[in-house]
Nucleic acid binder design. Sequence first.
DNA 1: GCGATTGTGTGCGCTGGCGCGCAGACGGGC
DNA 2: GCCCGTCTGCGCGCCAGCGCACACAATCGC
Lengths: 237, 237
Amino acid sequence: MSVLSVQRAATGNRLLDTLPGRDLRRVLAGCETIELAFGEVLYTPGERLGYAYFPTRSFISLVMPVDASASLEVGLVGSEGLFGIPLALGADASPVRAVVQGAGSALRMAAARFCGELQRSPALQRNVDRYVLVHLSELAQTAGCTRFHMVEARLARWLLMTQDRARADAFHVTHEFLALMLGVRRVGVTKAAGALQQRGLIHYRRGNVTVLDRRGLKAASCGCYKADREAYVRILG
Amino acid sequence: MSVLSVQRAATGNRLLDTLPGRDLRRVLAGCETIELAFGEVLYTPGERLGYAYFPTRSFISLVMPVDASASLEVGLVGSEGLFGIPLALGADASPVRAVVQGAGSALRMAAARFCGELQRSPALQRNVDRYVLVHLSELAQTAGCTRFHMVEARLARWLLMTQDRARADAFHVTHEFLALMLGVRRVGVTKAAGALQQRGLIHYRRGNVTVLDRRGLKAASCGCYKADREAYVRILG
DNA sequence: GCGATTGTGTGCGCTGGCGCGCAGACGGGC
DNA sequence: GCCCGTCTGCGCGCCAGCGCACACAATCGC
């Protein structure tokens, strides 16, 4: 196994693992490893952003609140990214709520330290910049998808995106929660999920979903999942 | 009039006019002034981004294409911003189409030169970073707005945003075009615009809209316009 | 083992927006 | 002054998703 591949597996977070060894060591020195619990709220709009989070085995939902009771997921951060983009761009606040969607480990770095490391490591700066682009791209895609596509297709896309980040076929999520993410009624999710289950693409049972047929799910989803993946590959290789 | 305020009025673009004199001069040396015509397409996804555009008296729509025939506006760039964010983040492509929405002057800089200037001028880098944040914020807001709000409120928001960038009470825009921006049918726009006109908030006639009652329009719009403004002020002051 | 909590399934009436198609109104070009 | 293209207005049937309300099922705490 080459030195490079050892490095790549070092933390589990892609933004960090592709750093040159020296930068990586310095960055890691500023991080602490933490365990994120399912449902934990890492950030609420209005607060100050105290940390940047680099998911390693966890993943995080970015939820945009609208009109008190409504909300919509506008991003999903797994081990390919970070939560805390505004810090990298010179602000200490975000319009979105950050909720732990998949429990697991993450690295966390204090805001000020993160800004400092960005100055010191051009490689980190570059990685983060690229990730900002990926996020921008996903955001635009999500906006369009949300406007035009049916609940069932959007659900399929969501399941695929989540499966990628959970790196597992099964994960915990209730219809109620999904409804909040997709910005629809719980009943809408029940119907859509029922249809997907009927077709043998997924199986779910009291808050636990299992993806049975990933290929079929891709076919059932809108083109947005594919578009997301392509954008990701184009930008981050 | 202070030196500062003279500087601020120099180009008409806020990202540039807030630069220190030396940086501004160097950046301007790399720009050419151009006239953008209504409807002109500055960029189509798939192409290479050849230039960064800094609107001075013009403004530009960012349109996300979805499924061949559908599309949705996901951003509006006036003299407060630039088109070409991906360049600043190390890429040379964008998922959105850039269409001139308000004819007028702009500054344009070749992609490579723009990247170079960003390296040389921390002030420019900072301004652009902040603008990226504003754009991110608007994008998230738009995603939520598009999902949950009625056409009439969204139209009101659009008119206010456009009025800000056109810096005029009247501007050219047809129902057909609005429908493309809002991602709805032309008839939907006709109905919504009719309602706003009925209430004396706007006047329109064959592709020309006049805002008559800005305050009323704010009341008719969803909270998203206000939220956008607040985010802008918070980030860019 | 039993009640309380959480998660899923269903029915019903409503409505905003869709697709389609057509009619009228204005205005620029010749 | 006329014609034709552009812009606006309207009607009709349709349907996805909404709000509400209730029923049942699985799990958890005790």
